[in-house]
Design a protein around this nucleic acid. Structure first.
Lengths: 160, 160
DNA sequence: TATTGTTATACTCTATAACTATA
DNA sequence: TATAGTTATAGAGTATAACAATA
């Protein structure tokens, strides 16, 4: 969503966070494009890896997105052989969504991409400074209820 | 653009920055909605305030956006009386874009919104910690060429 | 009747290309 | 011919509502 600019105080921390967050997202998007993945696909893979076998409804709730949006997303990853839809014989309305072997391989590649991304982004800082930064960011995230490892995106946003 | 999730390492600083950046943007968007402004409008106002009298071409270059996009943006702000297009008698192709008195008033309101936003976002930290955070973020932003006070958004992004 | 997944549709935001008016 | 601004058009991404199958 989000366009090219934000806030009035030229360089408060809030503005820097918005700036750096957009930059981090852009760079990460470029990196995963080489794996032929988009950020939404990557996020879905992560949730499936963490909670294998869940229904699409549960995955949608976990991601905070409308269930309809998951259909195309799951379709795409399934067609590429990264995930599998398994029918539940007890309740034939549900699918159980799992990673495939190829999907697990992709997760390992994503871990490498993430490490390189982290290194690039924090390259200006010493090891000690990185720990300080991580601690401060973690506390801010915690007080704003962002600690679950799921990117909030812009859901729940009343856009004008 | 950006969807609901990003990266593999559950809580590296890169992921935290993306998370917090999206959160900061969302909260700021909510706040300026009460002034009936969107983030792109706010960013344009800031650039005009900093460089009054520039042409739309220059403003577009400054924001890193196609000039066509500025037309509707300038239209909207002009219709609400926040900015003025002034013809240049020497070269009647150009406009010189200026803030109006009402626009300057809006800038003051935006400054207040920004201060409240900054306070809310960093409320978990002490005064000292806020200074440390600001210093670290500033250094990271600098090494990635983000220091101009203009939000990069997702321009130049090769999206899949 | 309620729920899972799906399809159809519409809306927002943005970019690209074609046009006008001035130079 | 080149440039500033504009309009028209198309595309990506997302959400809402209606629908089919199953419970």
């Amino acid at each position: 969503m989000v366009p090219f600019m934000q806030e009035p105080p030229p360089t408060g921390s809030a503005f820097l966070l918005a700036q750096l967050g957009a930059h981090a997202t852009r760079r990460f998007t470029e990196r995963i494009a080489e794996l032929d993945l988009t950020p939404p696909q990557t996020g879905l893979l992560r949730v499936i890896a963490r909670r294998p076998g869940e229904s699409q409804q549960v995955l949608a709730a976990e991601l905070g997105t409308p269930p309809t949006r998951l259909v195309a997303l799951v379709d795409g990853l399934e067609q590429r052989g990264l995930i599998e839809r398994r029918r539940n014989p007890q309740d034939r309305r549900l699918y159980a969504v799992h990673l495939s072997d190829k999907g697990r391989e992709t997760m390992r590649a994503l871990a490498k991409v993430g490490a390189a991304h982290e290194e690039e982004l924090t390259s200006a800082l010493s090891t000690e400074e990185r720990m300080v930064l991580h601690g401060l960011l973690g506390r801010i995230a915690e007080t704003h209820g962002l600690s679950q490892g799921v990117h909030p995106g812009y859901r729940d946003l009343d856009r004008p």
